[in-house]
């Protein structure tokens, strides 16, 4: 149970020194959570922007704050969640006690939340309203091939869950840089309708430019979701913005913080 008067939330994003849109969803989710008044304080910090993770060590100086929930706004566990974030925030384990007595509680990344498949499904329906799912292929797009990149496995996991629901004619995980390639979508799919949802935490070069180009969407038609559907070689292609821009991500972040306590209780009761 999170106490609103004694708890704070720190959302950790990657950020970018070249892409001004990279941090926008994290900041928006932070603003939404702040507006709800669930936490005494809500702050965001970034690996490549300010405030840095090191700066975040200086936040939450109010002595009434006893617990700081740290939620990485990343798609999956991996190099950043396991190496960079603990190192920069001086986290020694799931729960780190500072000299002040404050407890910093390291939560699971937003993208690993069990509701992620539900969000992907909702997003798919929103970008292709009224299109029969049984006559549609859903593509969940990951990056792939980055060193220690678990997001490829995460996209595969999500596609598997959605495939198991038997709603869509087919559900495929595809990647920018490794097979099955998003560029091969015409060969990989057989339905007239194809819905594409990038499994990324923010929009940027990949979701704005790279993936549309790999799909064959003409540059003048690359305008987020406004150009849907794109007619390409007899197919109707519906393209979504990155899943991390979904306002429901704010709820997922809150739930990841709340589940830290729930999971802790489960461990206690099992032992």
């Amino acid at each position: 149970m999170i106490s609103s008067s004694t708890s704070a939330l720190l959302i950790v994003g990657h950020g970018s020194t070249v892409n001004p849109d990279s941090s926008a969803p994290t900041l928006q989710h932070g603003a939404e959570i702040r507006r709800r008044g669930i936490f005494s304080e809500v702050a965001c910090c970034f690996w490549k922007e300010e405030p840095s993770l090191r700066d975040a060590l200086l936040y939450f100086a109010d002595e009434t704050i006893r617990d700081v929930y740290v939620v990485p706004n990343f798609i999956s566990e991996g190099y950043f969640t396991r190496t960079v974030v603990p190192r920069e925030l001086e986290l020694t384990g799931p729960e780190t006690h500072r000299k002040s007595g404050q407890a910093w509680k390291y939560c699971k990344p937003a993208g690993s939340h069990e509701r992620m498949s539900e969000l992907l499904l909702q997003r798919a329906r929103e970008v292709a309203p009224g299109i029969p799912e049984a006559e549609t292929t859903l593509l969940v797009v990951g990056h792939g091939t980055s060193l220690n990149d678990n997001s490829a496995a995460a996209a595969k996991h999500q596609a598997g869950i959605i495939r198991g629901l038997n709603r869509y004619a087919a559900v495929l995980n595809v990647y920018m840089e490794e097979p099955p390639l998003v560029a091969d979508w015409l060969k990989l799919t057989r339905t007239r309708n194809v819905v594409v949802v990038p499994f990324f935490v923010s929009d940027g070069l990949h979701s704005d430019e790279d993936i549309p180009a790999l799909l064959g969407i003409r540059s003048q038609e690359r305008n987020g979701q406004d150009g849907n559907p794109h007619q390409i070689q007899g197919r109707s292609l519906f393209y979504s913005t990155a899943i991390g821009t979904d306002p429901k991500f704010a709820e997922v972040i809150i739930e990841q913080a709340a589940s830290f306590e729930t999971q802790g209780q489960e461990v206690e009761s099992a032992s």
């Binding site: 994003g13 990657h14 950020g15 970018s16 020194t17 070249v18 892409n19 849109d21 990279s22 490549k48 990485p72 706004n73 990343f74 798609i75 999956s76 566990e77 991996g78 190099y79 950043f80 969640t81 990344p109 993208g111 990951g142 990056h143 980055s146 060193l147 220690n148 990149d149 678990n150 997001s151 499994f199 990324f200 935490v201 923010s202 929009d203 940027g204 070069l205 990949h206 979701s207 990155a242």
Partner: peptide
């Protein structure tokens, strides 16, 4: 290359 070459798990862009 400073951003493109870094290992990443969040596919942050």
């Amino acid at each position: 290359s400073s951003e493109a070459g870094e290992p990443r798990d969040g596919t942050h862009q």
